[in-house]
Every structure is written in structure tokens, then in C-alpha cells.
Design a binder for these strands. Structure first.
Lengths: 259, 259
DNA sequence: TAGTCTAACCTGTATATACAACCTAGAAGA
DNA sequence: TCTTCTAGGTTGTATATACAGGTTAGACTA
């Protein structure tokens, strides 16, 4: 039979999670220490085993603990050192800032893959690929040069698209919504073409995101996204799911960190 | 009563997840489409509601669907556009590449917080903070300048640490293993000091990671991590948890993408 | 002594049941 | 017509129970 709960109470499983996180957080439980087993939690916390199971299972997913069937639950070694950055679609990102996105198509053509493009897309030299070169604007200021190649047979109607109304990224994810991706972020000096398109000064570096996206086990698109170093940065927050998410954290940020 | 299972079978809840992911993946279910409710899955898939609930709940955590109590479950809008980059502790990162990490301590002192440091750490002007300036080496080549400030009362024994044997990052997470963090990644030209420490050429940009880490609701450390643009990049993979994780993806990468 | 077996724990999964809270369409009332 | 109420569907949580399978310590046997 279900237990009666006062309205809007914190769920029991969440209380368990919080309790264990607290004990890890304040050092009472240290890495590789044994965490109370499900049955011990049943006893001491007066919950059902399923509830204890859910708490411990979610803590596992979140990287706090490690569970070994037959042995027990242990505090995970070093959570922490991997912080996470999110790279979003440029149009969404601009819209999210409440700004206006526009783009200009410089080139939209069919080519034969060669050299590194062929290698990156896992196709033979000479196979058909589409090439799209665009500039994205945020409130009329150029913010990204997108240099993208797409495997031709993955997106046959690529040349018919109007990339000023739908970004290549949005177009591709509309074709196949799920994909793996690899990314690389680099700081490098732009070539003259990119520098001119982005209205960059001579000594300004660019932040380049190189992204290769996979679908059904094969690479389908390969993009270089160039941004002006003085006007673009990647930001990310990291909160160990369970933290009350102190809200205005992201706001102070930009003001406080200007160098 | 429990259902008998053949040994090592794929769990029922995972089968449900795979089935729904497949239907999203092949376009049968498109963003904002309605996903079968728990009770419908109970009927059509012959599982208990708890099993259906687990499948849908995990799909929610993984970003595939969105659930609204009282209404139903819907395919999440654009999963995809947010790709993820991981920023790891430099020592772990170097160790992971099978290389040797070493570091040199340039400065390790107590200071009074001023200007942007005070702002970033949410302390008054003049409050005690520790300052650590280090260079990290990968196989004797300088790869990172770490410029870090730490709130003094968070880490009172900071000056006693030997940062050549334990990195500041490792030291801090040993004190308080759980934290929130904010990060910013920028491409910028280094100042002369950084350029010299990292043996960079005059026209080489640096990739800067700015990281502020929180503990117990307050900022405790603020670090600028400078890397030589020609020798350092951030990499990340993104696979919608459930993909068979095509193994060698990360390997081809570096070779293929050299520009 | 050395090897084997077993009991007692552990996690992992699955089910049936129960109640609370939320949402909406449509019925019932003013 | 407009408002209010309600029934039924939906998610969210909690419990009790059951069985499968991994792990280990200690008892048992050869």
C-alpha cells in the first residue's frame, strides 16, 4: 500500500540521495568507502528496498557511487575533474540571447571529396559531397563562418535548401535527428578570408570548433566553425545533479571575468 | 511475482528504451510527438507499469523525451544541438595519454583580493586569498599556465602544499569533493609572460579556460588556464546514450582534421 | 592441508498494487 | 452563454514481494 505524503514534500528517494551526497560532500564518506547497502537503508531509513534501490541507482548514474553486484556500493573515486562545456547550434544560441540571427550563403555547391575531407567523411577520393560556406550574423555582426561538407547521398536535396531560412545544422538534424558527434576546439589564427568575413583585426585569433557528426554508424557531415576570438566564447556550467542549482550563477560570470 | 529471465538477457526496461529510441531515430516519432503512455506500454508490451515508468523516466533523464504530469510523454524538441565538451584535470589528461606530467611552481603566496578577483570570488576587497601560479609540463614541454586564486578560509593550509606533487585542482577536490563550476573558453593572444612560459611564437594564440568552482553555495576558486594554441585543443565526443559507441571514432580524428 | 560447497549477503530486475497530484474534455449547473 | 464541477487519463512516488545472479566467508570434506 502507498504511503501518504504531505503535498509537495521532497520525495523519499531524493532525501536518501541528498543524505548520501551530504555524507560524501562533508568527507564522512570518502572515495572507495562502503555506502550502506539497500537493506541497511531499508532498516535505518524505513523505506522499501525499491526506494533505496532507486536512490543508489541514480547516484550511480550521476557518478557519485559505484555499485558491484554481490559486493556492495562504494563511493566513486574522483568525480569532479571532468567539467562540461556545451556547444549549441549558433542560431539557437543567438535566439537564446534574444538577438536576431541571419546568415549569408557564400557557397553551396557539389564537389568531389578530396584529401582530408574524404578522410574525415570516410569516403573515397572523388566521391560526391556538398560544400556549404556561410556567414552567421548576430544583430548584423558576423559571428561565425561555417565551412561544412556533407556526404551527398545522405542529403540528396542539399542544393535545394535555402540555408538562410534553415541552417545546415537544423536541416541535417531534420533528416536524421539522432547522431554521434566528435568535436575539437582550437585557438588559431584565421586565414585572410575568414578574418575578412568576420571583420577581425590582424592580430585577433579565432576560436574554431571542428565537428564531425555521425549517423547510422558513418560520418555524414564535417564542419569547421570559425568565431572571432574577441567576440565569442564557449561557456558551460557544471552542477552535480542534485545541487539546488543556485540560479544566478551564470549572470555574474561575464561581468566578473573580463580580463 | 517475478518473471523468469533467460540468463544475461537484455533487461525489459532497456528493450523498451531501445524501441522508443529507434522510433525516434528513424523519424517515426518526431519532436513533440506523443509517446505511448505508461499504461499503453503496459498493454502493448506486456510489462508492468513500473517497468514502463523506468524506461520513460530514464529516457527523460537522457533528454530523449519530455514528460508532463497529467498530460503525457512527448519527444523532446532538439536533442542534438547541444554537443558536449569535457575539460579534464590537466594531470589526469596527460596521464591518460600515457605521458609524463610535471609542474613548476612560479608563485604560491597569500594576497589581498582586489578588483575582478574579489568580484569573481564574491569577497570584499582586501580579503585574504591565496594565489598560485604554475606551469604544467607534458613530457617536459610546457602545456599549461595555471593562474589560480583560492579563498583563504576555504583552504587554510594552502601555503603548506607542495603543488609539484599534488595539483591545486586535486588538492581542492580533496578538501571538498563536490562542487559546481562555471567555465569559459576563449581564444586570445597571450601576454608576454604566458607566451614565454609556454614557449609560444609571437603570433600564436592561446586557448584559455577560465573556471570558477563553487562549494557550499559560494565560489572558492577561480582559475585561468592558458594553453598554447598550436599544441593544445579540447576534444569531446557525443553519443546519445544508447548508441553502440562505435569504438575507434576518436582515433581517426586527429589525423583527419589537421588543417 | 587443500579444495569444495554452502549459506548469507549483495545488486539487478520485474511485478502488482496503491495513492497523490496534475491536466483536460465534457457534463452539469447557473 | 458562461462558469463550475467532475470523471478519467496521465505522471510521480512508494511499498511489498519475488527471483536471478554475483561475491565472499566460513564450514565441510577429501
Amino acid at each position: 500500500m502507498g504511503r501518504t505524503m504531505t503535498p509537495h514534500a521532497i520525495p523519499r528517494y531524493q532525501q536518501l540521495k541528498d543524505l548520501i551526497i551530504e555524507r560524501i560532500s562533508n568527507g564522512e564518506l570518502r572515495p572507495s568507502d562502503r555506502v550502506p547497502s539497500e537493506n541497511e537503508l531499508v532498516q535505518s531509513m524505513s523505506v522499501s528496498r525499491m526506494t533505496a534501490n532507486r536512490a543508489l541507482r541514480e547516484l550511480t548514474d550521476e557518478g557519485y557511487v559505484k555499485r558491484i553486484a554481490g559486493r556492495g556500493t562504494y563511493v566513486a573515486d574522483f568525480r569532479s575533474q571532468s567539467h562540461v562545456l556545451e556547444v549549441r547550434n549558433i542560431a539557437d544560441e543567438i535566439a537564446h540571447r534574444g538577438h536576431v540571427h541571419a546568415s549569408e550563403v557564400i557557397r553551396q555547391s557539389r564537389q568531389h571529396a578530396r584529401g582530408e575531407i574524404a578522410k574525415a567523411l570516410h569516403v573515397e577520393q572523388g566521391v560526391d559531397v556538398f560544400h556549404a560556406l556561410l556567414v552567421h550574423f548576430e544583430n548584423a555582426t558576423p559571428i561565425q563562418v561555417e565551412d561544412r561538407h556533407i556526404v551527398a547521398d545522405f542529403a540528396p536535396d542539399c542544393l535545394d535548401q535555402d540555408f538562410t531560412t534553415i541552417t545546415p545544422s537544423a536541416y541535417l538534424t531534420a533528416i536524421s535527428p539522432l547522431a554521434e558527434a566528435e568535436q575539437i576546439v582550437r585557438a588559431q589564427m584565421p586565414n585572410a578570408a575568414v578574418r575578412d568575413r568576420l571583420l577581425m583585426t590582424d592580430d585577433e585569433p579565432s576560436l574554431v570548433v571542428i565537428r564531425r557528426t555521425w549517423s547510422s554508424g558513418r560520418p555524414v557531415t564535417f564542419a569547421r566553425l570559425h568565431h572571432p576570438g574577441s567576440r565569442y566564447e564557449l561557456t558551460g556550467q557544471y552542477a552535480p545533479a542534485g545541487t539546488p542549482q543556485s540560479t544566478p550563477v551564470g549572470v555574474v560570470q561575464l561581468e566578473a571575468l573580463s580580463q
